[in-house]
Amino acid sequence: MKKGFLKIGAVIAALGVMTAAFAGCSTTEGNDSSNGGDAAGTTTGKINVCSREDGSGTRGAFIELLGIEEKDESGEKVDRTVATAEITNSTAVMMTTVAGNKQAIGYISLGALSDDVKALKVDGAAPTVDAVKDGSYKVSRPFNIVTKEGSSNPAAEDFIAFIMSEEGQKVVEEEGCISNGNNGAFTSKNPTGTITVVGSSSVSPVMEKLIEAYNAINGGLTIELQTNDSSTGVSSAIDGTCDIGMASRELKDEEVSKGAKATVIATDGIAVIVNKENSFDDLTSEQIKQIYIGEITTWDELAK
């Protein structure tokens, strides 16, 4: 009886070694397409398209710049982003999503770019401040602050004067955005009270730093920052529920007709991002469009 158990145990052990050996071959990273790579190290498999939510200024600018938004037969603009795209509701969530998915592609503000993801070249140009400035990197958009035409708020006006000053635009550049010039040195009128700034999650990081720098000059004014999306920032400025809106896109005609007034505080590139382990470094703008409208669905198609 004891010998029988020993023989059975030996057979099970042998089978275990064989199973482990086969398993080791099938799960070696780079040979398994589910890991996003082939034997040569090229990323393969289904592309996981990530986009921003409706109302996001980054999404609005991205789909316009890449031709993902097109006019239909009636002349209406239609967003052709593939229906299966994973929707992220902020820059931070987009970064986390792409960083955690080897098959993913997404887009974020250039100023928010970090080493957690890889930024692709677009049409051969890397997403850098210099490339946006000289026009070689064409995926860029304005950062706007929005107020209502004809409204007057001395406290908000003082903060806006700081943003557009030499000191404010220095903060803009320190945060990786591109200044379009400044109005010279700032002298505060030292207003007090509270104002509210609402809108784009792309503009929010630089706005946070602008608030800190302003409060170092005038600590008597409380500036409350609420982050959501560009459309909310614009509509809140129009209806008076905030003092300053933030929008990472151009204003729409209907928003302007309702009294929205935009002031460009910076220019920002939009970086197209993939997972750090992705083998691709450069895509054309046409390839990115085809990915986002569903004409290209796998990384294999891009490697041909």
Rank of each mutant, 00 (worst) to 15 (best):
R80L: 03
D116L: 12
A247H: 00
G100Y: 07
T241R: 13
K133I: 11
G124H: 10
G168S: 11
V172C: 09
D239L: 10
I163T: 11
E250K: 11
D300L: 05
G176H: 02
A262W: 02
T263S: 08
V172Q: 03
T128G: 07
S109G: 15
P154G: 01
S204D: 11
S179T: 10
I293L: 03
A155V: 03
S202G: 13
T147S: 05
G111Q: 06
S140W: 01
L225C: 11
G233Y: 08
A104Q: 08
I68T: 02
G100H: 04
D281Q: 05
N275M: 04
A10K: 14
T28K: 15
S109M: 07
G111P: 01
G124C: 13
S230G: 12
F22Q: 12
L251M: 08
K261H: 01
R52M: 09
I273A: 03
A131N: 15
E254V: 07
V274A: 01
F22M: 12
G259A: 07
G41N: 12
V203P: 03
V122L: 15
V93L: 12
G220P: 05
E64S: 13
S257A: 15
K77H: 09
V203A: 15
S34E: 13
S236L: 06
K71I: 04
I244L: 08
V129Q: 13
D243M: 02
A13I: 14
V198A: 02
G199I: 11
K2S: 15
A125P: 05
A262Q: 01
F159N: 07
I105K: 00
I217M: 10
V234G: 05
F280D: 02
S34T: 14
A10M: 14
D32C: 05
M246C: 11
G220Y: 09
A104C: 11
S109I: 02
A155G: 04
D229Q: 08
A13E: 10
L302Q: 09
N182T: 06
M207I: 14
K2Y: 12
A213T: 13
V129W: 01
L6C: 13
P205T: 10
A119L: 08
S188Y: 10
E255A: 04
G168V: 05
A260F: 05
F159G: 07
E250Y: 06
S114E: 02
P205M: 10
A131P: 05
E29D: 13
L210M: 15
I178Y: 02
T267Y: 00
N180K: 12
E224P: 04
K133V: 06
P205D: 09
V17W: 08
